[in-house]
Computed example of a mutant assay.
Amino acid sequence: MSRVKPFLRWAGGKTWLTKYIETFLPESFENYYEPFVGGGSMFLFLKSKGIIKKKAYLSDTNAELINAYRIIKSNSEDLINKLESFENNEKFYYKVRETTFDNNLENAARFIYLNKTSFNGIYRVNRKGIYNVPFGYRKIKDLFEFDNLLKVADQLQNTFFSVRDFKESCKKAKAKDLIFLDPPYTVAHENNGFVQYNQSIFSWENQIQLSKLSEKLNNDQIYFIITNAYHNSIKEIYTTGSKIPLIRSSTIGGKGAIRTNYKEILITNIEK
């Protein structure tokens, strides 16, 4: 099968890491868990390459995101029909942004549409929980890439979704399962532009909880791979597993943004 890409634009996505991830994987594993699924770049890479052979459990605290995955899996053709009626212009964008739909399919279409046409694909809501990202003025012909959307739907078979936090998501994992954890980064590191926004989503207390969870996973003989900011405070609280520095190249910001290299860290109990 040709390459399957994420169907969303997602800040902090790990497409760049897929080039190297096989270096860190165990020779084999049972089920796959991804509690911060986001745009799903890692899952789609591993599944489309046949590396995930059994069940996959994908979760996130963003209910709209998980609803979009479920609709793609179960009703991709009707979703595509709905998306075909959407227009990439400012007037239509704000009309959709201000509309509340009463069914899951229309809500999934709205979520994907806003992601594709908003400024930088950011997901942001105000204190009332209302999406408030401005129009992005993207001039792109194939906005939704329907062929790829159908490929994503194929990869979602034998995959199960839930809206829950990472602690709950990992409770059913057993020995020899693999958990990939890509939390929002919560400490300033090398001028990473995501950090200040993400502090309200994933607090330092959450970061400490995740570090303690990694100890439990290791004790239970569950494989884990955690990506995180390369920062002394992160290296100090994660006491289990190897800490491997990685360099990524990324553009953060809008038009005219400069492409910059950033150092991140991969923490894993998988011995190679």
Rank of each mutant, 00 (worst) to 15 (best):
N62A: 07
A63R: 02
A63G: 01
E64G: 13
L65T: 03
L65S: 00
L65P: 00
N67H: 00
N67P: 04
Y69S: 00
Y69G: 04
R70N: 11
R70M: 14
I71W: 05
I71N: 03
K73P: 15
S74R: 01
S74P: 01
N75V: 10
N75C: 11
S76F: 02
S76R: 04
E77C: 09
D78F: 03
D78G: 00
L79F: 03
I80W: 09
I80Q: 04
N81H: 03
K82L: 11
K82D: 09
S85Y: 03
S85I: 04
S85V: 12
F86S: 10
F86L: 12
F86M: 08
F86P: 04
F86R: 03
E87W: 13
N88T: 12
N89G: 15
N89M: 14
F92C: 10
F92L: 11
Y93C: 09
Y94W: 14
Y94V: 13
Y94L: 15
K95E: 11
K95H: 10
V96P: 15
R97K: 15
E98S: 13
T99N: 15
T100M: 07
L105V: 14
A109G: 13
A109P: 13
R110M: 02
F111S: 01
F111A: 05
F111W: 03
Y113G: 03
L114M: 00
L114P: 00
N115P: 02
N115V: 02
N115E: 00
N115I: 05
K116T: 09
T117A: 15
T117Y: 14
T117Q: 13
T117H: 09
T117E: 13
S118A: 09
S118K: 06
F119C: 06
F119R: 07
N120Y: 06
I122T: 11
Y123I: 09
R127L: 14
K128Q: 10
G129V: 04
G129L: 06
I130Q: 13
I130N: 02
V133Q: 12
F135G: 10
G136Y: 01
Y137I: 10
Y137D: 12
K139S: 12
K139N: 13
K139E: 07
I140N: 08
F144Y: 06
E145C: 10
E145I: 11
F146K: 08
N148Q: 02
N148K: 02
L149V: 14
L149F: 07
L150P: 05
L150Y: 12
K151S: 12
V152M: 04
A153H: 15
L156T: 08
Q157F: 06
Q157M: 02
T159M: 11
F160G: 06
F161I: 11
D165P: 07
D165C: 07
D165R: 02
D165A: 06
F166D: 06
F166S: 01
K167V: 14
E168G: 01
E168L: 08
C170H: 08
K174E: 04
A175L: 01
A175N: 10
L178Q: 09
I179E: 06
I179M: 13
F180H: 08
P183Q: 09
P183E: 02
P184K: 06
T186G: 11
V187L: 13
V187G: 10
H189G: 01
H189L: 01
E190D: 07
Q196Y: 15
Y197D: 15
Y197H: 14
